[in-house]
Design a protein around this nucleic acid. Structure first.
Lengths: 336, 336
DNA sequence: GCGGGAATTGTAAAGGATTACATTCGACGT
DNA sequence: ACGTCGAATGTAATCCTTTACAATTCCCGC
């Protein structure tokens, strides 16, 4: 069932059929109708390989993340893929497993498949690997990547807003002694979040006590240890904010283990709003990372880069606080 | 950088280069060497579109699951994708979101992209949708699907083995009163698991008490409610096995809420070994679904179907119990 | 050294779309 | 009625491999 059949049936040339398929301007409305009817009647579907071969446009997008197993990503992938599907674009996606060397590899694979564009969300985007794609004429957009933001289109997420909301929530509950579980400062995102948190503290005139900042490995285990460290402090904070939900969950466990009741004795706030956040006990108040929006924005940027059309809103995305049950007034303060 | 360049450089015809690329037999070893050197020197990569166009072989596999957001799948996807990458095969994957209608759509998209083969793991595989692919000459394999197992190659998972291990573990701890949280019986997998569980009970000569079988919706919330129902029973079981981890987590929460300590007052065992199983408190003993192996097996089946080569082990895969901390002897029985 | 069959290698068509360029159509002004 | 010009459509080259078939080379026994 090739384009020739359609052309015959519609009594036009293949060129015209192609023009209709690609929505080129300058085809008479009547002709468009005729061709579209023929397409429908024959149940014709263009061959993507032939298209890709000739037109260098494959309607294939690449998506690179650091880790499928990280519960942060499925929703991002889902959203990205849904947008793509709606436009007849297929997505091939790969993950680096946090290994910069593999990023190189991922990008190469995508170039070899001649994708039309690549979206990248990894903790450390390597300039050199990405440059490969640019050399091959493939647009790249970054998500949530501050370091290379100048060199590539980027979807920015403004952590500060989220932390400010979290802080204001805690303050309104009556907390003044607020700890933080940071991540390894070599990680871009961990550093960004810590900076945002301390900025939020300062903007409320709260002194940042370095002994109330513990460092974890971004995973549950690390959160547990970090929380143990915080609990050992004298005095200890009445509320703790964690860099991500995984560590917040660890913190929750550490509290449990020390027979400290959350939220009665201690409030905990996470960051990301992973599915797990609502599954633990008590359900975790957390700052929702707007990952669906990030994906949508990234997709829009790519589409723009490929088709060269349209404007894309480039205001930073704002995370927002989701209040569940891991926060309450500190002991000795009544709920209003 | 096309095949002609390579042919020139190696002083052979394009046909020979192609033969080398596709590892056809009947090319002199010396020639192979020469061509491969040329390929390497020119950094030549065959154009997948041209290949797909002429050879009808795209080195693209499709993977259809029911839900990316279900924490069960990332590991499966990861494993499948890793195997594919190792052979230069790319994977496009889609999800049905539990909607049979969308399965049709997924399959069509894959046919349109002319994938070489499709692997399917959804809760309800629709015969008609799959048949489309077969008509298009695309091999399909199923994972963990009993219903259509006769009509398509399938990777079987023998639930019974896992439940037997779980049961023996509980028995050895001293439990005799064992409840079960089932899933909706219209779901294939839920039914299979319940059957496997009751079979295991019977094989140990334990009477199946229907009032100790509660039904949940396969999610946390449903597990919580089901557990509440079980806790309302008089007498109540000392141990509960759940159809999946998500409901086991819900059960854990219900126990918490009723101030029942796990595992002291109640033992809980899940099924799947999701990442969350080790994150909750206490870490959940669970039956590990061998999903990496399932993916590997499915991939092997597909490769075989495409290349027509090799034998694939078709013995059923066995889930195994992973003992963590949600199981202990019932009250009144000493640990040995 | 040569005939002949097997083993290698080469030639050119085919695969299905896009697109540069050529052609035809249609409307309009005069 | 005709020339003109823009709009609409058509023709055929092109994208890059694979592969059927043809041509050549190799090797061996005689």
């Amino acid at each position: 069932m090739d384009i020739v059949q359609v052309a015959k049936r519609a009594k036009v040339s293949t060129a015209t059929v192609s023009r209709v398929l690609n929505e080129f301007p300058g085809v008479r409305e009547k002709t468009v109708q005729r061709v579209q009817r023929a397409i429908a009647e024959l149940n014709y579907v263009p061959n993507p390989n032939a298209r890709g071969l000739r037109a260098r446009r494959t309607r294939l997008f690449g998506l690179i993340v650091s880790d499928v197993n990280n519960p942060f990503f499925p929703e991002l992938i889902d959203a990205f893929e849904a947008m793509a599907a709606a436009e007849g674009i297929e997505v091939i996606f790969t993950h680096t497993n946090y290994d910069p060397h593999r990023l190189q590899n991922c990008v190469r694979r995508m170039i070899e498949r001649s994708v039309d564009a690549i979206a990248v969300m990894t903790s450390e985007a390597e300039e050199e690997a990405l440059h490969q794609a640019v050399r091959a004429g493939i647009p790249v957009v970054l998500m949530n990547q501050r370091k290379l933001a100048g060199k590539y289109p980027n979807v920015p997420v403004e952590y500060t807003a989220g932390f400010r909301e979290a802080l204001e929530h805690l303050l309104s509950l009556g907390h003044r002694d607020i700890g933080f579980i940071a991540g390894p400062q070599r990680l871009n995102s961990a550093r960004g979040r810590k900076d945002a948190f301390t900025a939020a503290l300062k903007s409320h005139g709260i002194h940042v006590r370095s002994e109330w900042i513990a460092v974890g490995d971004m995973r549950v285990e690390g959160g547990r240890k970090a929380m143990d460290a915080l609990l050992a402090q004298q005095p200890r904070p009445t509320a703790v904010v964690a860099t991500n939900d995984l560590m917040a969950v660890g913190a929750l466990q550490a509290a449990h283990a020390s027979r400290i009741q959350v939220p009665r004795d201690l409030s905990i706030i996470g960051f990301d709003d992973l599915p797990i956040a609502s599954m633990v006990h008590p359900p975790l108040s957390t700052i929702r990372h707007p990952r669906r929006e990030v994906a949508a924005r990234a997709f829009a940027l790519l589409r723009k880069a490929v088709k060269g059309e349209g404007k894309v809103d480039d205001s930073p995305l704002q995370p927002h606080l989701v209040i569940r049950s891991s926060t309450a007034p500190p002991l000795g303060i009544k709920r209003h």
